[in-house]
Computed example of a mutant assay.
Amino acid sequence: MSQPQVDIYTKFGCMYCTRARQLLDGKGVSYNDIDVTMGGDEKKAMLERAPDARTVPQIFIGDTHVGGSDDLAALDRAGKLDGMLGLA
């Protein structure tokens, strides 16, 4: 099973963003880190994908909107994250 594309929309200095990156790094997963600190087209793209998102990180695995860092960690605790990442 191949790994789906993982996108993380982040801001500079965000501890929740760091926590999400660390979880994925620990699993050896590559991801696109998309900085929305300055707004612009990147933030616009994030809001198109997750219209109600007002915080970062916003994490996508393939076309699935996972949510934030706590949501990612909850998937991992529930044993569902590895399958979504193509690691299982």
Rank of each mutant, 00 (worst) to 15 (best):
V66S: 02
T10H: 00
S30C: 12
V6R: 03
T18M: 14
G39Y: 00
C14K: 04
L24H: 01
D35G: 02
G28A: 00
V36K: 00
Q22D: 11
G62V: 11
L23G: 02
E42T: 09
R54M: 13
G68M: 03
V36I: 09
L47K: 13
V56W: 01
I34K: 02
K27C: 10
D82K: 07
P4Q: 14
L23H: 03
D70L: 12
M84K: 14
D7K: 03
K80T: 11
L24M: 10
D25T: 13
C14L: 05
M84D: 07
V36T: 04
P57V: 02
D35R: 00
M15K: 10
S69N: 03
C17A: 09
D63N: 15
L72K: 11
D70P: 03
T55N: 07
F60V: 11
L72F: 12
G40W: 05
D82L: 10
P51W: 12
V66E: 00
L87R: 05
T55P: 00
Y16L: 09
P51E: 12
G26E: 08
I8K: 02
L75R: 04
A45G: 01
R19Q: 09
A74I: 12
K43C: 05
I61Q: 04
E42M: 13
S30N: 15
K44Q: 14
S69D: 04
K80G: 07
L72D: 04
G13K: 09
E48M: 14
S30E: 15
I61D: 00
A45M: 08
D52M: 15
P57I: 01
D82A: 13
V66G: 00
I59L: 06
Q5E: 13
R19N: 07
D35Q: 03
V66L: 02
Y16W: 10
V6E: 02
Y31G: 08
A78F: 09
Y9T: 01
G13E: 08
G62M: 10
V6T: 05
L72Q: 08
L23K: 01
P4F: 14
D63I: 11
Q22F: 06
M46D: 02
M38E: 09
L47S: 06
C14I: 10
A88E: 09
D76V: 10
F60P: 06
M46R: 05
T10S: 05
E48K: 15
I34W: 01
L87A: 10
G83M: 09
D76K: 07
K27I: 13
A74W: 06
F60A: 13
M38G: 12
G86P: 01
L75C: 09
M84I: 12
G62L: 07
R19K: 14
A20C: 07
S2N: 12
T10Q: 00
G40N: 08
T64G: 05
D82V: 12
D7P: 04
Y16R: 09
G62C: 07
G39F: 01
I61Y: 05
G13V: 11
A53L: 05
R54V: 12
Q3I: 11
A88V: 14
G79I: 05
M84Q: 13
D70K: 05
L72V: 13
G79R: 01
D70H: 06
V36H: 00
P57Y: 02
M1H: 10
E48A: 15
Y16M: 13
